[in-house]
Computed example of a mutant assay.
Amino acid sequence: MRLQAALHLLYPPQCLLCDTLVTSDFGLCGPCWRDTPFIAGLVCDLCGTPLPGEDPGHPIHCDDCLTLTRPWDHGRAAMLYKDNGRKIVLALKHGDRLDLARPAAGWMLKTLHPILTPDTLAVPVPLHWLRLLTRRYNQSALLARELARQAGIDHCPDALVRPRNTHTQDGRSREGRFDNMTGAILPHPSRGQRMRGRHVLLVDDVLTSGATLAAATEACLTAGAIGVSVAVLARVAKDV
């Protein structure tokens, strides 16, 4: 504690997004917090999109999830992918801001308490080895590891593999995204067995169409998972 106090004197905590001084590590200043589109209130039970109205006391789904068949059971997102939400995701994904994984996992965990079970196994969406070689880390694996640590649940970083390089999904139509991901994610030949008989929490940074998470969910179910939920840092969604 004394060492931490001394470090704070030498290096006062700063906002994660700007240079403003804050009262604790891994925090946002007031203005940055207000400009970060955290999701609260009524949400779609399958993707975490915020919905208008009051909680009806039973699961409710957004238009996308009423149209598409989601292979997972529940889904939550910490924020919308816009404004500071987009900045945080891109900084973690492409800006070497590995320090963001800790607070991001905490924000995600706050949305997950209703759907976590003690036997849940946290599993990240995998990267193809060429993408991992270029980026040097898998941001989803960082989030999954930190989320599992904070939640006190098991974690398997390599339960899934991505044997085919699907390249970027940017610019593809919804149908193109799903076609591109068909068969692209599989259970690890040996580590995948850890999912058998377990509830799996799939972790990724962003949910757009859901094509990647659908492919990963199918791989988990193929490996014997008895249920799959998804957790993402940000959800691409229309304002409500």
Rank of each mutant, 00 (worst) to 15 (best):
L80T: 08
L80F: 02
Y81V: 00
D83Y: 07
G85A: 09
A91T: 09
K93Q: 05
K93A: 06
D96S: 12
D96L: 03
D96G: 02
R97A: 15
R97E: 06
D99R: 10
D99A: 13
G106K: 10
W107D: 02
W107Y: 14
M108D: 07
L109Q: 08
L109D: 03
K110M: 12
L112E: 04
P114K: 05
L116K: 01
T117R: 14
T117E: 15
P118D: 07
P118R: 03
D119C: 07
L121H: 11
V123T: 09
P124G: 13
R131W: 11
T134Q: 15
R135T: 05
Q139M: 08
A141R: 12
A144I: 00
R145H: 15
R145M: 13
L147Q: 01
R149A: 15
Q150L: 13
A151P: 06
D154A: 15
D154L: 12
H155M: 05
R162M: 00
R164T: 12
T168Y: 01
D170Q: 12
G171C: 13
S173Q: 13
E175T: 14
N180D: 04
G183V: 01
G183Y: 06
A184D: 09
L186F: 01
H188M: 02
H188D: 11
P189S: 07
R191Q: 14
R191A: 12
G192A: 10
G197I: 09
R198S: 03
V200G: 08
V200T: 11
V200L: 09
L201Y: 04
D204Y: 09
V206S: 09
A211Q: 00
A214W: 01
A214G: 02
A214M: 08
A215I: 04
A216D: 02
T217K: 03
L221K: 13
L221R: 15
L221I: 12
A223I: 11
